[in-house]
Each structure stands twice: as structure tokens, then as C-alpha cells.
Design a protein around this nucleic acid. Structure first.
Lengths: 154, 154
DNA sequence: AACGTAAATGTTATATTATAACATAACCAT
DNA sequence: ATGGTTATGTTATAATATAACATTTACGTT
């Protein structure tokens, strides 16, 4: 459970950030991309590509899988959305400008995927890679479990 | 590239470990499970379920997907194999008794997935989870990049 | 405004990954 | 040997993702 006071603000802000970033980078924030991002942000949890597709089908006839996957690819490449590989699902990025190494605390109860950007983890991963003389291209860190809200912790 | 001197030893040892573990736990290390594990260990890199299926088809007629997936599920549940979610592939575990939090350095060049079991990372992950009052069930950490061999580092 | 090009989307088809559901067989404790 | 449990066989299909090519749209240049 995510306790934003007004979730419509979360969506609006995410769309605005995306628009700004695309403007700044000379990229096109098209209608399809906007609608997909909007659907990704309908909750703070991961959403599946085909759920996006189904919801777009209600609004736009004849949306097909490649359209959705292309939009998701675009959004992912530009750090606006992250893919959660262990769920085959996608989640909006709350701070697309800060950095790209975002880790996730995924609650298997309520479904929320909380971004968790921890320097210690980044450091530890970097050090391990360095020790192995390994050159990092991409890091996927997905922590599944139960969040504090669902555990009833206060 | 993995530089084991005699790879057939790697396979034999993995099969022996699996047998011992199953014996100790009262589990059945059946023929299907043994063959699947053997194929997983044919290299030190990840292998896809359908590649296992294809290879078994050469040896045993009429092996079907559920058979392979069931064996992989069994092996994964018992820590003998890990699933690499970012690749939809499976890799043998080199020390199935030690622990279950194994991280991977996956070389996108040679395909090797090196197990990398680093306490600092475990700690950092544990602390972050604790700070978020999050109860961990499962951690997936997959680091993709280029390994020292492929980079030509000495 | 018309043109040309590149980028995005539409469209059809299919590839890849994974599981549901039920039937049969093998194992093993009594 | 019998009965229950676990594993496998079998058929079908679900879920996830992409290839390939056609068409449209955006947009700078003339």
C-alpha cells in the first residue's frame, strides 16, 4: 500500500517529468507513450504489458502487442519505467533524472514495488564487480517479501 | 570462459552433490531430474528450458515442456539450480549447501554466469530491508556486463 | 505549401516461455 | 498385494515477446 495523499498528482507529476525529459533530450513524447506511461502509473505496483494492452483496448481500438512493447522499451530506455524481471512486469520510476540503478522492494501481498536506492548496495555491487574485474553494464536487484504496511508494523 | 581443468569433473561433482542432498533430505533424484541437471551443467553459463528440452528430445523421445519445467522447479527449490530471471534461463549452483543468496556476474560476451556470494551485498540488502521494515522472502541480483577474460584483463 | 526523410505506429504472423488439467506409472510403507 | 503418495506422460493452451513489412506522422528543407 502506498500512501500518497492524491494519487492523481503522482500520475500528473510523472507525466510532466516525462514530458520535460523528452523535451530536454529532443525525444517525442507521443500519445501512445503518454497513455502507456499513464497506465503504468495507475498504481505504485508493477503492471504487465498485456494488462496495459487490455486497458488500452477499451480506449483505442486495435492496439496490438508491438505497440505496447515499443512504448515500454522507449520508456525503459529513458529511465522512466523499470522492468521487474522476476515478475515480467513494469513499474514507473519516481526519479528518472537521479540515476538508473534502482532496486526494488516488492511486496508479494499488496503488490507495491518500492524503489530503494541505497548507496551501500551500489557500493557493494561496484566493489564486487571491481574485485572480479567485471565491467558492469546493467544491474537487476529485486527483493521480494512483505512490506511494513502488510506486516502491520508501526 | 570458465577455466575448470576437467569439466566432466564439474558435472560429476554436481550430480554427486545433488544425489547426496536428495538422500539427506529424503527426496528422489529421479532419472529426469538427473538428466536435466546434467544438461544444466554442460556449461558454466545459463541454459534455457527449451534448449534442455531439445537436447533431451535427442535422447528420450516425447519429453514435453512440463517435464522439463517440473524438474527445473524441483532443482531450483532445492538450491541445486538458480533461475536467472533477466535471461529466462537456468544455471547450476556450485555450492548448494552453503546458502541460497547467490548473486551472478553474467558476461554478455561469453555467457558465463559466475556465482558471486558477497557478504557486503548480503549485509547491505539486509540493512536496507530492515530499515524499510521489509521482510525478505527472496532476493534476485543479476549483474550483467563483461567478464575479465573477455575484457582481456590479467 | 509541397517534398523528402526519419521516426513512430499499424498490422500480420509467429516465436518463446510457461502452466493447467487430467491420465498413467513408479515408488514405498504397511 | 494394497493403497496412498509422488512423479511423469500427455494434450492443450496461456502468457510473454518479437520479426517483418506496410503505412502514417512529424518535421525540417525547399
Amino acid at each position: 500500500m502506498h500512501n500518497c495523499t492524491t494519487h492523481s498528482d503522482c500520475i500528473a507529476e510523472a507525466l510532466q517529468r516525462a514530458e520535460d525529459i523528452c523535451d530536454a533530450r529532443g525525444l517525442r513524447f507521443t500519445d501512445v507513450r503518454r497513455k502507456v506511461l499513464e497506465l503504468v502509473w495507475q498504481s505504485h505496483g508493477p503492471i504487465k504489458a498485456y494488462d496495459i494492452l487490455d486497458q488500452l483496448d477499451q480506449r483505442i481500438a486495435s492496439i496490438k502487442p508491438p505497440t505496447v512493447y515499443r512504448a515500454l522499451d522507449f520508456l525503459t530506455e529513458n529511465g522512466l519505467v523499470h522492468k521487474i524481471n522476476s515478475l515480467n512486469a513494469f513499474v514507473g520510476c519516481g526519479h528518472p533524472l537521479k540515476h538508473r540503478e534502482c532496486y526494488f522492494l516488492i511486496c508479494s501481498d499488496c503488490g507495491e514495488a518500492k524503489e530503494c536506492c541505497n548507496l551501500d548496495i551500489v557500493d557493494a555491487v561496484a566493489k564486487t564487480s571491481w574485485r572480479n574485474q567485471f565491467e558492469i553494464k546493467n544491474v537487476t536487484l529485486e527483493i521480494t517479501g512483505e512490506c511494513s504496511d502488510c506486516r502491520g508494523v508501526h
